[in-house]
């Protein structure tokens, strides 16, 4: 049944890895858990690693957008990292643009984006 994904802390940021096949309730739990962690730890950034995700459907896509919006309200920036090429192609065809969600190719670049933001104030977008 549904589980709760571990949320790791790296400096002032939070990191969570989405594994291949999450049921919908686990995805919903993640939204709440991340919001709570952002506030509790005063996190400035959230990295969602989807390297292991074989697909991103509209449900997970919506969750990524929602997490980005919630985090922004809580003064944290969200970066989605590790999207597979086939997933990107499929998302575009599906009609999901993930508006408002920043992406980076890998964890290292995602952390660099967050570091830039915390040193330069609010990011351009």
């Amino acid at each position: 049944m549904s589980e709760r994904l571990p949320i790791l802390r790296i400096g002032g940021n939070l990191l969570v890895s989405i594994q291949a096949d999450l049921d919908d309730q686990t995805v919903m739990n993640l939204q709440e858990d991340l919001a709570e962690h952002v506030v509790r730890h005063g996190a400035r950034g959230v990295i969602i690693d989807i390297t292991a995700a074989e697909i991103v459907d509209s449900f997970v896509g919506r969750m990524l957008s929602t997490i980005a919006s919630i985090s922004r309200l809580l003064d944290a920036e969200t970066v989605v990292v590790g999207m597979r090429p086939a997933v990107a192609i499929t998302l575009v065809e599906l009609g999901l643009s993930l508006g408002g969600v920043r992406t980076a190719l890998n964890l290292e670049q995602g952390l660099a984006i967050l570091a830039e933001r915390s040193s330069a104030g609010p990011a351009a977008r």
Binding site: E54, I55, A86, V87, T90, L94
Partner: peptide
């Protein structure tokens, strides 16, 4: 890519 599209469609 086609696997990913089909699995995503199936999920929807």
């Amino acid at each position: 890519v086609d696997q990913t599209k089909l699995v995503t469609a199936a999920s929807e």
